[in-house]
Design a binder for these strands. Sequence first.
RNA 1: GCCGGUGUGGCGGAAUUGGUAGACGCGAUGGAUUCAAAAUCCAUUUCUCGCAAGGGAGUGGGGGUUCGAGCCCCUCCACCGGUACCA
Length: 799
Amino acid sequence: MKYDHLKIEAKWQKLWEEEKTFKAELDKTKEKVYVLDMFPYPSGSGLHVGHPLGYTATDIYSRFKRLQGFNVLHPMGWDAFGLPAEQYAIKTGTHPKITTKENIKNFKRQIQMLGFSYDWDREINTTDEKYYKWTQWIFLQLYNKGLAYEAEVPVNWCPELKAVLANEEVVDGKSEIGGHPVIRKPMRQWMFRITEYAESLLDGLDKLDWPESVKDLQRNWIGKSEGCEVNFNIKDIDSDITVYTTRPDTLFGASYIVLSPEHPLVGKIVSNEQKVEVENYIKLASTKSDFDRGEVNKNKTGVFLGTFAINPVNKAEIPIWIADYVLMSYGTGSIMAVPGHDERDYDFAKKFKLPIIEVVEGGNIEEAAFTSKTGKIINSSNNEGLNLNNIEVEDAIETAIQWLELKGLGKRTVQYKLKDWLFSRQRYWGEPIPIIHSDDGICPVDESDLPLTLPEVDKYEPSANGESPLANIDEWVNTDTGRRETNTMPQWAGSCWYFLRFIDPLNGTEPWTKEKEEYWMPVDLYIGGVEHAVLHLLYSRFWHHVLYDLGLVSTKEPFKKLFNQGMIQGEDGQKMSKSRGNVINPDDVVEQYGADSFRLYEMFMGPLDKSKPWNTKGLQGCYRFLQKVWNLFISKQDTINSGNANRDTLSILHKSIKKITNDLENLRFNTSVSELMILTNHLTTLEKLDRDVLHIFLKLLNPFAPHISEELNHMIGFEKISSSKWPKYDKKLILEDEVVLAVQINGKMRGTIQVEKEIKKDDVIAIIKENKNFKKYFIEMRIIREIYVPNKIINLVLK
RNA sequence: GCCGGUGUGGCGGAAUUGGUAGACGCGAUGGAUUCAAAAUCCAUUUCUCGCAAGGGAGUGGGGGUUCGAGCCCCUCCACCGGUACCA
């Protein structure tokens, strides 16, 4: 009988579907495990072999945990709002709903053919109004908590296309489509005050079982910086400038002030003589894209305002400039420039011939800014009680802040790089924001009126002034009480809370019930790509922190353990992409070799978190392995009986149970597969096979290759693996009577000896001295030191 | 520039976390089977000297700690990812 993977896989998949084998139900008598994949955006091109890598890993883990007796929640769904469907609609007029439906169908087919044990009764779709009703509901909870607000914010405006572009549609300052220039244009937007949660989000990271690199990325993104604000009076004008600095120790070295071109004070304090030049500069800066502004990095520009500020520590009059190297969006939008000890200020001062004052010892400011934080302060004292001279930088910072606070000239502050979250898009295919603008102001849609559904439109293009296509639908936009918000939510919205909906997906009256939330949350294992290290994972943590503060969820952090799967490259070692023509389609692989081989190979390729190239030969190796397993059972079918297990076999079997159990727990799938191969290789050497040994072997194989293992298990007459228990290893059976001991002479490997376990050191030495292979080393030599690690190694130092 | 990661045979990768480097798989070579091929099975396969028995070298380079280092420390190099005027 031949191994017919197509027939076997179809048979078991049908059975699992019919029997709802993997349905998860709340059962407080059992310990739960929530195993989650980052749900996909169902694109038109379908899956390539890289996508199911993480899904395979979570599936194996889920099956393993179920066999161990855990109550496992393992769901799948669709993050289906998004640009491609909308762009396709603009091009062809096909409603995104239709495109999305087709794509989901194809994705689901591909995912199901791999035999994943999802509870499909919990399938969700972010574009389903029954789902986005609750996305809108959560928006209102955030709004009511004062975390959502409107603001004029620059967007990527492409005058040529008359469209607002998403960041990912802008490449090097040009539109991705057509390569037209993109500028920053302020438009009314919805924002979330994620910055209010900066500290909370930073704090929460410490306790998470996440890759350190991802935590670091989030920490850098939040970008906490501790320093102080300092007030500078402006000469002859009744106004002052507040700057943010992390280096108040260098205040005596401040030789000019720089405001961002967008700073509100600029118009107020510019001198008449400089007015025209300043206005021109502001205009120039405003048309520059962020990209251009970044590019001028080395060549700094700026204009003198014609006004002076008074340095609070020494009453020096220092000029005030504007320059676009100072960003309005960080700190106070203004800085004190200390060219002696800051590279940017140094470049600027050199270019515009501004004074450079040395206040920290240790560098040579004739040549470069000295930015080190180790050194003593010099040239820094006044007669108002501040003397920083001879103090180390770190201490001087403290002293300076205390002095500023005492004199009321400044205060200690904390800054974050993190900015508020721009939460609106000028698009059709997204959740409508449930807000009505009336004469009385902003009015949230009543919760009982949710979902606020998307209207049908004829055209998916944005309106001429860049508003969303919804702005063109009068009957939708105009209501009795006012005009509807026409912006929709960004794609992040649906994925911010989908893991909560999975626990109670059909609930029509609440987003989830408290009882189920308390049982299933948090997610115990979350696997997905590193590309979501910051945005998705930060945004969903933000929502979850807010929901926690509102008492709607029981844990602050949603994802306990996070793991990033690596990329699968093409056979050429390059990134898999259509344009390179190196895409491997899982449909073909499954057709030819089967889902079991596919799953096994993806795991065998290497560590889950590493990138590695696809190799069809390697896949064939795994296929051969399964055939070997199949042939083992078929060819020796007549010998299979109870009581056939010998000591050797049991020892290897129990070693395998131990290793595979441990590896699965730690997501080391590649070495598990290797262990299965070792065990199989041993079994093929046997004359007679033991029925119980085979049964255990199949259980070990089952998470990786669920179809073939169930089939063979059925063949040798056991009840289904899916309703059996994971094996436990017996320590006593693993132990062998004899061990191979490595022998080193002077630290060099010189051979091995076979000895009985736990043998005494002196006996080992005696054996070595008598052994003909080692005898020669003892000629005219004496042992001066002996290092003995029982059952492992002995090292003799001779002289 | 800053932060993070990686570097082991021809290739993907193992190595109980300081104790026999190269498990397992791929590829390659030789053999068996076959009229022949595919498939399958057996053997060999880090490099190097040697007919052999045996040596020598070896985990990106250099240095160190140790009886012993792929693993720890210092330093340098290469590649990958993130980020970048954040004051």
